[in-house]
C-alpha cells in the first residue's frame, strides 16, 4: 500500500487522479476519506486522515493563502 507521500508524487504525473478526487469532495467524514484513499491504493494513518479531512475544502481551493 502506498502513502500520502506517494499520492502527492503521483498527482504530479497523473492529473486524472486529482480530477477523481475533486469529483468526490467533500467527504462526509474521516472514514469516507480513508476509504477513498484506500480504494485508490493509499494507506492513511489516523492522524493523516484527520488532517486531510480538516483541510479538505482547501485541497482544490485556488484562493488558499500561502504563508512564505
Amino acid at each position: 500500500m502506498k502513502t500520502y507521500m506517494d499520492f502527492i508524487t503521483d498527482i504530479t504525473t497523473n492529473s486524472g487522479l486529482l480530477q477523481e478526487l475533486e469529483l468526490v469532495l467533500p467527504f462526509p467524514n474521516t472514514d469516507a476519506l480513508t476509504v477513498w484513499f484506500s480504494y485508490k491504493g493509499y494507506a492513511l494513518g489516523d492522524e493523516d486522515a484527520a488532517m486531510l479531512y480538516q483541510h479538505q475544502n482547501a485541497l482544490m481551493d485556488s484562493e488558499e493563502p500561502i504563508h512564505y
Binding site: 500520502y4 507521500m5 493523516d48 483541510h55 482547501a58 481551493d61 504563508h67
Partner: peptide, 22 residues
C-alpha cells in the same frame, strides 16, 4: 517522517491546495 514533512510544508507554507505544493 516523509508524510509528516509534506503535511508540515502544507500547514506552515503552501496551504493545503495541492497545486500550491506542486
Amino acid at each position: 517522517l516523509q508524510t509528516g514533512a509534506i503535511f508540515a510544508i502544507q500547514q506552515y507554507f503552501t496551504g493545503f491546495q495541492l497545486g500550491n505544493l506542486q
